[in-house]
Design a protein around this nucleic acid. Structure first.
Lengths: 341, 341
DNA sequence: AGTCATCACTGGCACATGTCAATGACGTTT
DNA sequence: AAACGTCATTGACATGTGCCAGTGATGACT
């Protein structure tokens, strides 16, 4: 009889309601969200939920719900300064050895969550922290990137553009380029620009035709303005997702492997020494070019797991990333690999 | 026998310590601050303090202490998105009426804290949120600015410069220009540039000489690069702090009042219509010029209280501020004043 | 060497918070 | 118009947190 929004019209407003004692002595009509008010009183004024409930004329449980809503919606942000994590000496040593400009290493907690989950989590924090008012973010795809997108704190970034780096795969991943991109844009309340083209086409000629298409061409113009890219990294050993997911055939993959490729990231293959590995597949793959990628100032790679160590080393030597988010075990292994040669 | 830092050398390391059950199964040696680790597990992984204590091999109370340290030191930041507060319709209407680019209105809680305290608090949040990696912040002085400086969250901003807008007053305020400036710089871990000159000198000639002095000249060159200014606002009615604090004499003040001045902010007087009010005092006052101030992109004024309403209106019309942080009652009053004429 | 001050850590209690099933209002369907 | 589903809200209970005084270790001073 008091709560259902401040439109107190229905119940005779001036009615000297029985136990009205402390009932909304200040019917706030705050013009602002109740959750915001509660959050302010709780987090900034340090009041207890009891007091807030009393002041707002609602139950304490409702205050709790409002606070939770405030956290969920990003009205209140609880953030750990990721630069502190980078400072951890492991990260520092890794940066020094590889030439990364920044490196974030996940503490080796006993967390039960999957590695993708955990690295995506840390990656989300890093992305948020590195995010300016105005950005153009190029997004590739992958399981970790997908988790990252889901773990971003909702925020208002109307001047940020999130663009898809690579064509939409025909395959049905649950972490497709389209999903990764739109998820991130949604969380940031940013402009979402999908690439309305297949990821791989049948002949180079088709690629040429598509690339000449104004709408596609325009998209790649946008990509050249990227201020950051976000992507995962894949190794090629065993039954990889690239083949399993239907992104490419085993035969196509084998060509790269035969040429010495060890990994794949943001649309390009490379060997363990960091040299690009190319094949005719590249001429049919619709994605941002290698040179263009290297022109992006901040290139964030999220990924870890021991099988990926070789791929990560190759990618780092290839310079595709200058920011790496990974886990402790992988960081150690990469460091060892670099020490080796 | 376990806690005093991880240099576990003293107690025979391999000793099969009696109740060693869960004793630091992972003596982390994290290379990183324990507080950081605890904060990560608590705020990001959502573990309970009990679990964390177990994992880290310390008592729960210590975990609590670590978390508090993490909050105190700014490792963990809990922030309310101030843009939401700006969105509150009162703030919106005020922005629309006055031409402010942003406006933040303090919720009218029943807080017992002083108005300076509360507005300083909100101002601190606004400043933090608007702070880029690289800034030059010009700081004036006042009680509210002082509170703001004390309520800033500690953070690392090595590329920020905090510069004093106005000469150091001979008077002994507990909120002098020097203190306001150095406090803010300290909190931000930014470069602090004080103005080593008196605020008011005896004759215009002395001012001219000082202004020609290389070190002073250089300071004003720096001030011209300000990306934001932070200041309070004073009314001139009754025994004002300007006179009481010994900043200027009652006679000097009276000249301004006789000319119609109603307020004073960031070193300049103005009337209720927003016209600058000048006197010979200005020629002896060592401070950033009015024109230079108006060239600063973001000009944040913190202040409220009904006696200041006239002064705030004048200041807004004078354009000295384009961002205002105030309380609800004052906001209403200012809005009413604008509606009037 | 002995004494004292300081500091970090902890046990345990009082209190604050998180959770959940029950409640009642409202809108929708038959 | 009655029956139903949905949703926000709540009271009461189970946990988790905040705090303080007590303890032992360390280092400084006499």
């Amino acid at each position: 009889m008091k709560h259902p929004t401040p439109n107190a019209a229905p119940d005779a407003a001036p009615a000297p309601d029985a136990k009205s004692a402390a009932r909304r002595p200040i019917p706030p009509q705050f013009g602002m969200d109740q959750a915001l008010w509660a959050a302010w009183l709780y987090y900034e004024d340090g009041l207890k939920q009891d007091h807030i409930a009393e002041q707002m004329g609602i139950s304490r449980a409702s205050v709790f719900n409002l606070l939770q809503k405030a956290r969920d919606e990003g009205i209140v942000t609880i953030a750990i300064d990721p630069t502190r994590i980078a400072r951890a000496d492991l990260a520092l040593r890794l940066s020094a050895a590889t030439g990364l400009s920044e490196c974030f290493v996940l503490p080796a907690g006993n967390s039960t969550a999957s590695l993708h989950e955990q690295i995506g989590h840390l990656g989300a924090r890093v992305l948020e922290n590195r995010l300016g008012e105005t950005e153009v973010i190029g997004v590739a795809w992958g399981r970790t990137v997908m988790r990252l997108s889901q773990l971003l704190t909702p925020m208002q970034r109307p001047n940020v553009t999130v663009a898809q780096i690579t064509g939409s795969s025909a395959a049905t991943f649950d972490f497709s380029p389209v999903l990764c991109t739109s998820n991130i844009a949604e969380r940031l309340n940013a402009r979402c620009v999908n690439l309305h083209a297949p990821g791989v086409v049948s002949t180079p000629a088709v690629k040429d035709i598509l690339m000449a298409e104004p709408s596609i061409h325009q998209h790649f113009d946008l990509l050249r303005q990227c201020t950051m890219t976000v992507f995962g990294v894949t190794h090629l050993i065993g039954p990889t997702l690239l083949v399993q997911g239907g992104f490419m055939s085993q035969a196509e993959m084998q060509v790269y492997i035969d040429k010495g490729a060890i990994g794949f990231a943001s649309g390009h293959f490379f060997d363990i020494a960091g040299n690009p590995v190319r094949s005719e597949f590249d001429d049919r793959h619709i994605t941002m070019s290698h040179d263009e990628l290297l022109n992006v100032p901040r290139r964030i790679c999220v990924g870890g797991g021991l099988p990926k160590v070789g791929a990560i080393c190759g990618m780092l030597r290839n310079r595709l990333a200058n920011v790496l988010v990974t886990d402790e075990a992988t960081a150690h292994a990469v460091l060892a690999e670099y020490a080796k040669g």
